[in-house]
Design a protein around this nucleic acid. Structure first.
Length: 516
RNA sequence: GGCCCCUUCGUCUAGCGGUCUAGGACACCGCCCUUUCACGGCGGCGACACGGGUUCGAGUCCCGUAGGGGUCACCA
């Protein structure tokens, strides 16, 4: 039975790289009927955990990554908050101390700092020489008489190799003597991450530790802890990290301004910002960012599209097939197909996946996805609005994300801007444009009925009567009634607007043309 | 700097010694379709980091070099 876990810190946001790691863990567990566990690593944060955790849980729920044990759902190994498991961690520290795998260290922070700086000055790396180690109570009381307090350090082996069998990297060998005596408990007795993580993984019965490769250098000391305690080793799989757009360094939330220099990345953010602005989504500058999952949810991405893209960031089935449903991911995912090199985040390819997923969604689903955005943007009152359904169907794959409905605001209300370039080219510049528009307006005015087929017949016979080609007027009509040079089928557009609006808008356009 | 990891088109990747004049996808560029835009169709551009081995034969195995990256907290 496979049991995996993802252990976020309650930071208030869910990082795209973290989602990828969680996804792989989830797929690995779920495909074999195993469990995926969510553990909250809050040993440091302490305060406001609930608030900072919520966005993370919301993110997972939106993505459909459900957890078998963890916050909200509980489970047999409760609690799932690391801060509430401290007693167990402390007991482990005591055992380690007792068995001689750890020691009390009375070094003062400033002494360590001086040592470190001295080593750096000599051009060497700092390596703690156990100078303030107390192995006996006598030694300890001497130090304590000086007013010193002990941290607990691991007494790492100084010979032999640590051999890690990694499911994606193969065998990794590290000489024990290069490993520092890591601190596992602070002077106040509170246990640190590496210790806590190992204990919790063991207590939860985690069989596969699947995490990003930045944890690979930590693995020897974790192995030392668990073997000193007599725990079995889980299987390890260190995933390559997700790299920044157009680069090879690890993707980080903090480097937003750097990524903005990447055209594709800033285009994606702009695209989202436009939607957020029109839909009056209150965006948190801190999380409205393509590195954070909230961003995608807020502008109307499809969760499965994001998962599909993330799946391919470091994994492939055969190099040919790229589209997978979540069910297929569960069925086909294997750790041995995970790549070793970091994969850089490509906003364009992500958008391509999104556009494709959204286009293949049944119309009803698309309507349901779009409706909240249309309502928020003030285009319709409710999701039952018949025009909305018509527009969504007519727009087809021009809607890449649900929020793109804002681009068709002219279908719903009369306030729209003319694109100045389009106005110049299609209305102002062509000699006969205004004259033809006026003529077409009159024809529409006197029409009996005005569905898409009527509009087509009307326009075509108008062209015949004027002995012009349809191309000589249709662009002007489009700009006149929508303000834009691009959009879906002209006749459908005319029908959606209706006779009255078409006449009014042509009138308004003619005035504008005459004014300037 | 020490330790560790990584290295095929711009990007994501296929490739597990011969079928590789290196395949697919995104992006880009043409052409076609077309009332615009988008979609779609067809085509094009475009990569094995370098140097040594091993082998009849290396993108594929070994060694080295270079480059990139991660990590070195009383953070997680």
């Amino acid at each position: 039975m496979i049991r995996t876990r993802f252990a976020p810190s309650p930071t208030g946001y869910l990082h795209i790289g973290g989602v990828r790691t969680a996804l792989f863990n989830w797929l690995l567990a779920k495909q074999s009927g195993g469990q995926f566990i969510l553990r909250i690593d809050d040993t440091d944060a302490g305060r406001n955990v609930a608030e900072a955790l919520q966005p993370i849980l919301e993110g997972f729920k939106w993505l459909g990554i459900d957890w078998d044990e963890g916050p909200e759902v509980g489970g047999p190994s409760e609690p799932y908050y690391q801060s509430q498991r401290i007693e167990g961690h402390k007991a482990a520290v005591a055992k380690l101390l007792e068995s001689g795998h750890a020691y009390r260290d009375y070094a003062l922070p400033e002494e360590l700092k001086a040592e470190r700086e001295a080593a750096e000055k000599r051009g060497e790396r700092f390596f703690y020489d156990r100078r303030w180690m107390a192995e006996t109570d006598e030694q300890a009381s001497v130090y304590e008489a000086e007013g010193r307090q002990a941290t607990i350090r691991l007494k790492m082996p100084r010979e032999g190799d640590c051999v890690i069998e990694d499911l994606v990297r193969g065998t990794v060998t590290v000489a024990w003597e290069t490993e520092q005596d890591h601190v596992i408990a602070r002077t106040d007795g509170s246990p640190l991450y590496h210790l806590a993580s190992v204990i919790d993984d063991h207590d939860f019965g985690i069989t596969h530790v699947v995490r990003a490769e930045e944890h690979l250098p930590n693995t020897p000391r974790q192995i030392f802890i668990l073997e000193s305690l007599g725990y079995p080793r889980p299987k390890y799989a260190h995933l390559p990290y997700v790299a920044e757009p157009g680069g090879t360094a690890k993707l980080s939330k903090r480097k937003l301004s750097k990524y903005l220099k990447n055209k594709d990345f800033s285009n994606l953010l702009d695209h989202g910002a436009r939607i957020a602005d029109r839909c009056k989504i209150t965006t948190d500058a801190d999380t409205f960012n393509p590195v954070i999952v909230d961003f995608y949810r807020e502008i109307g991405f499809t969760a499965d599209a994001l998962l599909n893209y993330l799946l391919l960031l470091g994994w492939s089935l055969d190099g040919e097939r790229e589209k997978f449903t979540v069910e297929e991911m569960k069925e086909l995912f294997t750790l041995d197909r995970v790549t070793k090199a970091p994969a850089s985040f490509d906003p364009q390819k992500l958008m391509a996946f999104q556009a494709d997923h959204f286009a293949t969604l049944p119309t009803g689903d698309r309507l349901q996805a779009v409706a909240p955005f249309a309502i928020a943007a003030g285009l319709v009152e409710s999701s039952d609005d018949p025009t909305l359904a018509t527009v969504v169907a007519a727009a087809g794959d021009r809607l890449k994300v649900a929020g793109d409905i804002i681009d068709f605001g002219y279908c719903f209300h009369d306030e729209f801007e003319y694109e100045s370039k389009a106005f110049e080219k299609r209305i102002r510049k062509p000699e006969q444009a205004t004259e033809l528009l006026a003529g077409f307006r009159d024809v529409v005015q006197s029409a009996d009925s005005f569905d898409a087929a009527d509009a087509e017949t009307l326009l075509k016979s108008f062209c015949e009567s004027k002995e012009i080609k349809i191309g000589q007027i249709i662009h002007a009509v489009r700009v006149a009634v929508t303000g834009t040079a691009a959009g879906f089928g002209m006749f459908e557009t005319l029908a959606i607007l209706g006779k009255e609006r078409v006449v009014q808008r042509i009138e308004k356009t003619l005035q504008k043309a005459a004014d300037a």
